[in-house]
């Protein structure tokens, strides 16, 4: 169920922009909620990016320590072990 939460959130915020920019509805609680949901999504994206950057830095650090390190090779070794 939680996996499907993204669809209504994104659709609501996009629909709000459609309503505002086409001048169909520019004021009211619906628009306020929609725009705030859009900004909430922006904040979530910033947090997601920071989380992703943390992972990237981990990989770059491993590459710095060992120039032969590669996530693809690590994955390959892991899959070989799984097969055994």
């Amino acid at each position: 169920m939680i996996k499907r939460i993204g669809t209504p959130i994104v659709l609501v915020s996009l629909l709000t922009f459609v309503l505002v920019e086409t001048n169909i509805l520019t004021t009211g609680i619906i628009i306020t909620i929609g725009l705030n949901v859009a900004m909430l999504l922006v904040v979530i994206q910033i947090l997601a990016l920071l989380l992703g950057i943390k992972r990237s830095l981990g990989i770059f650090n491993k590459m710095e320590q060992s120039p032969l390190y590669s996530p693809v090779r690590e994955g390959f070794i892991h899959s070989q072990k799984e097969e055994q």
Binding site: K3, G6, T7, V10, L14, F17, L41, Q45
Partner: peptide, 15 residues
Amino acid sequence: LCGILLHFYVVHLTP
């Protein structure tokens, strides 16, 4: 912003 929301949906929020 609408384009980035679409990008966010397609890349991360699809089930």
